[in-house]
Write a protein that binds this DNA or RNA. Sequence first.
DNA 1: CTGTTAGCGCCTTCAT
DNA 2: ATGAAGGCGCTAACAG
Lengths: 345, 345
Amino acid sequence: MNKSKQPTIKEIAKRLKISTSTVSRALNDHPSIGLVTTMRVKKLADELNYEPNRTAIFFKQRKTFTIGVILPSLSEAFFSAAISEIENFANSKNYTVILGQSLDDPERELRIINTMKGHRVDGIILSSAKNTREFEYIEILRKAGIPIVFFDCVPDLPEINAIVSNLKTGMKEAIDTFVSCGHRNIAFINGPAHLPASKEREEAFTEALVSNKVPLNRDFVVYTDLSEKGNADAILQLINLSQRPSAVVSFNDYVTLDAMNAVRSKGLTVNQDIFFISYANYPIWKYMENPPMASIEQLPGKQGALAAEMLFDLIDRNVDLNTDDPIATEGQKIVLESKLVNQHV
Amino acid sequence: MNKSKQPTIKEIAKRLKISTSTVSRALNDHPSIGLVTTMRVKKLADELNYEPNRTAIFFKQRKTFTIGVILPSLSEAFFSAAISEIENFANSKNYTVILGQSLDDPERELRIINTMKGHRVDGIILSSAKNTREFEYIEILRKAGIPIVFFDCVPDLPEINAIVSNLKTGMKEAIDTFVSCGHRNIAFINGPAHLPASKEREEAFTEALVSNKVPLNRDFVVYTDLSEKGNADAILQLINLSQRPSAVVSFNDYVTLDAMNAVRSKGLTVNQDIFFISYANYPIWKYMENPPMASIEQLPGKQGALAAEMLFDLIDRNVDLNTDDPIATEGQKIVLESKLVNQHV
DNA sequence: CTGTTAGCGCCTTCAT
DNA sequence: ATGAAGGCGCTAACAG
């Protein structure tokens, strides 16, 4: 009976006996509309509780004012810090953020990307799943004209846009600190060898030892697949050496947590028999009785903000050219230095 | 020059020299379209890499196949568990989830709700910010025909849909456990008095003491605003009593973490001088050298799944009636029992 | 300054 | 079994 529903510009136009285009323009503060008309329109819109139908606008403008952010996990402190900043930046541009978590599963990751593409997001920020090896989606998104910015876990490809963290500076500081505390037997629990992040860490580790004139013991470099068991196995390998290390740098804080548990289970004491430093600066450390000696901070918030900024640059450029092959300027990378912080002990 | 772009049904129709309606129907497996035609259409669609323009569909169908989930924080373990299950459920229905974090700020919460409303989400799942006192948005969303399901932090109103956790069962078990371990001086750090969740916990605390014939000491009930300082102050109040408690139930795990730090700073030892049990079962406990004695599990995953299920019921009903005043059946509530788990010590 | 017209891509009566 | 036509709400040439 009553077709109540949401009021439209048509409704406003009818009541005011003017055309819909005038209403539309008035609502958007178009300069060429008379002040009085504009006021009348806005007043009525207010009274009617008018709200533009964004689905119509999205449709018409071929833009959704929405960006997608895909991360391995929403709950890791590193990522939630990044999310917050991305959201802030996006909101300040009146964009909405859609989040997805890949759970480090490449299939899931691809599915999320396709969903977001289906929803016509205007751009994507992605920290790739740890074991994604195929990056066809880059091509897919390129064809669809959806710009993408990587951060944190970045594929080793030339033509991509990314915020990357220089892992070396922090590693250098970590080793320097260990050495200055008298450690000579310094080990390294690295992540999966195929990851660029692992390669870079390992190079940095080797270089830092050299520059400190500490001989590199091959047995002191072990690997984990980042699973709980992998992490425990890695530290056990080190502990079981005839000469075990007194200091360990590990891939990240989650590795360190598992490693510490394993250390304790062997009757050893953290920060006494063995010391840790790892990447990430997990906020929970302040609640631990024996936290790592220090953390290598990677500034997730900053990375997120920069990623967002870069993405919006690309989106705006897209609009300007607003044509085929939009993403001409590919391959920009911004490097952020990691650094040692929180001397917890 | 080349209007490459995405193919549309029009394009397909032109190439096949049939009408767009036929293409549309074929693509949607409409029964009245001949098998051959259907095949031809689908084949060409495939070749052209056709993908329906969802923004057009959203617009046309007045549905976005998107639900909004708003939580105080995405990084709290409790919420990420809930998110995962909500996502799973939604994805199985081909819905997309958009997430928002209120950071316990009522203003921010309201803004997010309005944004989501603007994006025309089909429904919302909400764990309200701790200190939201005004719930006008319920009315706003009702008018907009957007169903809403609460969980975890649920306003104390009759006409809302919600998944609620029965906090009493877990509290009873917690007190029973303390008593059976010989504790008689049992204290309680409660959250803000205005929260339904606080009221329920306190009732449960009192009842459980009574049923265990332990006298209630008024000094043993203190409050925190859930800030780090508030948490520390609360436990210090207890510690500084002439007769201090030997066991403490606290509002949640985050309170306990701060309390434990404060305890240590006073030279006392957790799980020796003082024992804790709290709500939530934070996954980090297994990495702590002195975790709480046990946790009261609230099954966030289950709550999330139930909330999603309830929301989709409401959405489907909305479609069926597909009329004004859609949410006739308001006020269903599902209660989930909390229970004691993880005897960590 | 304002109105007219057209169309975004898709679905859906209503015909045939 | 298929086509023609209209419209969702909004914006944007193109006219005046």
